[in-house]
């Protein structure tokens, strides 16, 4: 028996919004530590890694490890039926070929359940080693979303250059060029609003705007985003989900031909 109950059901709605443009299907791997999902987009350029810890749920039970392959469009459709304040419960029997989502309104007056068929998906996991990155940038997630949106008007790709003075985002295209520089916040009153840079070596990398814009669909999950970069390795864009886990996106850098 698998059962995971979340009073803050809107978290699951937001998680689906954050992954459904990038992935069409994915496997939710559930064990007694929680729920994990790892999947690459169809072109194998980016990867989504989601972790929701068991202790972040209001009730969590997983008697046997279970891998549930799901069509994410279908999951998104079902979660759209949940109210923002609803409690969401996912449950499945051992070896089941369906999963059930139960939504309860705050006053318990409305209870809905939706049963969805599971899929058998080929598991293709990448081993991602713990990495020390040359630069990590923490900044307000809404600011990062704004920068990605604004710069994608200028070109298909964006250069992110991090030095100890700050971080510069640039794009160049037919209409011209755009540069956005963010300085490190001098005095941090509210950490959520600060730009904080930790740098061992300066790094400049180029990434596809389209994917960065997909990643920013996670903005509502966290007030802050962390970008981790080293020369010639994938960028990591991490949104921490309060008290329960994180969603990380990995994106391969563009390479000069």
């Amino acid at each position: 028996m698998f059962e995971a109950r979340l009073l803050r059901g809107s978290i699951l709605k937001k998680v689906l919004e954050a992954i459904k443009d990038l992935l069409t299907q994915a496997t939710f791997d559930c064990d007694d530590s929680g729920i994990q999902l790892q999947a690459m987009d169809n072109s194998h350029v980016s990867l989504v890694s989601l972790q929701l810890r068991a202790d972040g749920f209001d009730k969590y039970r997983c008697d046997r490890n279970i891998s549930m392959g799901m069509n994410l469009n279908s999951v998104a459709k079902i979660l759209k039926c949940a109210g923002d304040k609803d409690t969401v419960t996912m449950k499945a029997q051992d070896n089941a070929d369906t999963v059930t989502f139960v939504f309860e309104s705050p006053n318990q007056e409305k209870v809905s359940d939706y049963e969805m068929k599971l899929m058998n998906l080929d598991l293709e996991h990448l081993g991602i080693p713990e990495t020390e990155y040359s630069c990590t940038i923490r900044m307000p997630s809404a600011e990062f979303a704004r920068i990605c949106r604004d710069l994608s008007q200028f070109g298909d790709s964006m250069v992110i250059a991090c030095t100890k003075e700050g971080v510069k985002f640039s794009a160049t295209g037919e209409i011209g060029s755009a540069n956005i520089k963010l300085a490190q916040t001098a005095s941090v009153d509210k950490e959520e609003e600060a730009v904080i840079i930790e740098m061992d070596e300066p790094v400049t990398l180029t990434f596809a705007c389209q994917y960065l814009n997909y990643f920013t669909k996670a903005t509502s999950l966290s007030p802050q985003v962390q970008l981790s970069m080293s020369a010639d390795v994938p960028l990591v864009v991490e949104y921490r989900i309060q008290d329960i886990g994180h969603i990380r996106y990995y994106l391969a850098p563009k390479i000069e031909d």
Partner: peptide, 14 residues
């Protein structure tokens, strides 16, 4: 001209 490398070029299959 820039090209995009696939991710499995950086990480091994688990």
């Amino acid at each position: 001209q820039v090209a995009q490398n696939p991710l499995p070029q950086y990480y091994t299959w688990a």
